[in-house]
Nucleic acid binder design. Structure first.
Length: 636
RNA sequence: GCCAGUGUAGCUCAAGGGGUAGAGCAUCCGCCUUGUAAGCGGAGGGUUGCCCGUUCGAGUCGGGCCACUGGCUCCA
């Protein structure tokens, strides 16, 4: 006899019944059953023995089932509205679900509303979802009859003779399940997007139409998800960038994927760079500068021309010599290393550079600041002895976390990518490097995931992913071993034994690229930068034109204290207008100066949060702003 | 690169199923002298992404290109 734990905690014993029968009229919110850690249909029979737990809709584990069923409802609705549409796959994903279709003629966003309406009808019909097992031959015949070419392909890969289908009303779909017992339980869902997707992610195969949607157990969860989505849209750096006058990208004239940093964006970048450089010097790095182009010989040695050429800009020919825009900084850093014979005593050498590189990215993948063609890597190459590897890796990782925390990131996940099938170098080096990465992650208390075989051919790596204020993941830091370039460039150092040895080389970028990182920062802070990064920290507003001289005096005093302050003295603008403008610019401090303040050497302080603190003595305001600046916190 | 959608003033958007482009904000010029999220009036601003075609006539219809958006793919 199996024990079945009901949602309320009550335990029942049963035999020969399905879960649904066991539950009877109490089945209302029941979604699935958890049997030995596996999620099963409620229409299945209670197992002979062991333990089972009934999951309700509000169980996190049931969410995937709910969404998978929602995907079926989507496909069902599509087939009702667009007969002849071919079905591909329809899984649950992190934020919802999708289904891939091949429509006979294109559909548009307007069709989504119709499809959603039809889905609601299917939900209202409360159709039972029943599992149907068909013998392989019959399954094949059935799918052939329907012309479901994609399903037939999937079928080929399914082992066994009994093939699982699910039926709801007139809709029957090849599917491994599990599913909710009935369509009526999918109450809170919404279709979100329409996109193209290749069949099996292969660009040589059919392009399908993917419909994205999401579903939740409760209306509140759906609503808060949609609000979150709306908030993310509002924070889009491509919207905030121009409206805060931070940067622009002008593809018709300047070029796609090439970023113009406006004065305010440049101010922020400079602060980031100054911080970055200062911290690197403190951490024992040596800053270098290298050119934007290099002769083809260099890129031949590095192998870029052989393996990376399609991502490089076409050569520039001068005096019969070919030069290439650099896609990476490493060959230059290595060239500096090689200017003389290096002793083991010199190592480790840590070269760092904010190096601007150019890579040809296909136009379809360009995306604001996040995916561009010209960008500045916060790059470094660490060249060290084998016995220093572990210590160096720990240092880099610790350093990376230190830098990222300064920018307000507190949640990290590490991904350790290990040796792929095709690799270069010897397995012992790989082993040593991989273990160093692993131990460093463990020592820093990072939760990490191993991506087996996902390393580049030239070395293992560890990537750090941060979560922004909206809990969205961004991969920033990458720390990567390279067993290839030291070979290619024949990098050596003289050991204590007087012989030449091959050093280890580690590539690393902490922020990734300044462009991408800036885009992420804009979204992370929603444009409201903490004081230390704010391009304008304080704005001084005169109440009327008579107060302009005092406003200018106040701004001057703040600037003398190293505060980035401006007096806004435009004629013909009311205080109301100026305050609104300052708020929209998300300037942290607004200092209102009128006759009353001038008389007492004060300014009325209003914060970006709209909090109005009234007149304050200037020294107090200055101290407050300076404290907020040096703390690097978001507090005002 | 691929699929779908979109492209009108600096920005956000209008112009019934072809009839010769309009509003708000911004800009400029005045007036107002302002006390914490838009004071008032006026003016300028467009080869409707580009090219070709259909038509008496194209922002609107057709074809090609370009760009962007959402994805997919790529990221030695």
């Amino acid at each position: 006899m199996a024990k079945v734990i009901l949602p309320g905690g009550e335990v029942r014993e049963a035999r020969g019944l399905t879960f649904l029968e066991l539950l009877g009229p109490n089945a209302k919110e029941a979604a699935a059953a958890l049997v030995n850690g596996e999620i099963r249909d409620l229409r299945e029979e209670v197992p002979e023995e062991g333990e089972a737990r009934i999951l309700t809709l509000s169980d996190p584990q049931a969410l995937e089932v709910l969404r998978h069923t929602a995907a079926h409802i989507l496909a069902h609705a599509v087939l009702r509205l667009f007969p002849g549409t071919k079905l591909a796959i329809g899984p649950a994903i992190a934020d919802g679900f999708y289904y891939d279709f091949r429509f006979e003629s294109p559909i548009t966003h307007e069709d989504l509303a119709r499809i959603e309406e039809e889905m609601r009808r299917i939900v209202a019909e409360d159709l039972p979802l029943e599992r149907v097992w068909l013998p392989r031959t019959e399954a094949e015949r059935l799918l052939q009859e329907k012309g479901e070419v994609y399903k037939l392909e999937l079928l080929e890969e399914i082992p066994g003779e009994k093939i699982s289908f699910y039926r709801q009303g007139e809709f029957l779909d090849l599917c491994r399940g599990p599913h909710l017992p009935s369509t009526g339980l999918v109450r809170h869902f919404k279709l979100l997007d329409l996109a193209g997707a290749y069949w099996r992610g292969d660009p040589h195969r059919d392009m399908l139409t993917r419909i994205y949607g999401t579903a939740f157990a409760t209306a509140q969860e759906l609503e808060s998800f949609l609000r979150w989505r709306e908030e993310a849209r509002r924070r889009d750096h491509r919207v905030l960038g121009p409206s805060l006058d931070l940067f622009s990208i002008q593809n018709e004239t300047v070029g796609a994927g090439l970023v113009l940093w406006h004065p305010k964006g440049a101010r922020i970048r400079r602060i980031i760079e100054d911080f970055w450089v200062a911290e690197h010097y403190k951490a024992g790095y040596k800053l270098v500068y290298t050119p934007h182009i290099g002769r083809s010989r260099l890129w031949q040695i590095s192998g870029h021309l052989d393996f990376y050429r399609e991502s490089m800009y076409a050569p520039i020919v001068i005096e019969d010599q070919e030069f290439f825009l650099k896609p990476m900084n490493c060959p230059f850093h290595i060239s500096i290393y090689k200017t003389k014979t290096r002793s083991y005593r010199e190592l480790p050498i840590r070269y760092c550079e904010l190096g601007t590189v150019y890579r040809f990215e296909r136009s379809g993948v360009l995306h604001g600041l996040l995916r561009v063609r010209g960008f500045t890597q916060d790059d470094a190459h660490i060249i060290c002895r084998p016995d220093q590897v572990e210590e160096e890796i720990k240092r880099v990782l610790r350093f990376a976390l230190h830098i990222l925390r300064a920018f307000g990131f507190t949640e990290f996940t590490a991904y350790l990518s290990t040796r792929p099938e095709k690799y270069i170098g010897n397995p012992e080096d790989w082993e040593r490097a991989t273990e160093a990465l692993r131990r460093a992650a463990e020592e820093e208390g990072l939760s990490y995931e191993v991506k087996a075989g996902e390393g580049a051919f030239y070395g293992p790596k560890i990537d750090l992913e941060v979560q922004d204020s909206l809990k969205r993941p961004w991969q920033l830091t990458t720390i990567q071993f390279d067993f290839n370039l030291p070979e290619r460039f024949d990098m050596t150092f003289i050991g204590p034994d007087g012989r030449e040895h091959r050093p280890y080389m580690i590539h690393r970028a902490l922020l990734g690229s300044l462009e991408r990182f800036f885009g992420i920062l804009i979204e992370h802070y929603g444009g409201a930068f903490p004081v230390w990064l704010a391009p304008v920290q304080a704005v001084v507003l005169p109440v009327s034109e008579k107060d302009i001289p005092y406003a200018e005096e106040v701004a001057e005093k703040l600037r003398a204290e190293g505060i980035r302050a401006e007096a806004w003295t435009r004629e013909g603008k009311t205080l109301r207008w100026l305050v609104r403008e300052a708020q929209l610019q998300k300037i942290p401090y607004i200092l209102v100066c009128g006759a009353r303040e001038a008389a007492e050497g004060k300014a009325a302080l209003r914060l970006r949060t709209s909090e109005n603190l009234g007149p304050q003595p200037l020294p107090e305001i200055i101290a407050r702003i300076r404290a907020a600046d040096s703390s690097r916190s978001t507090a005002l």
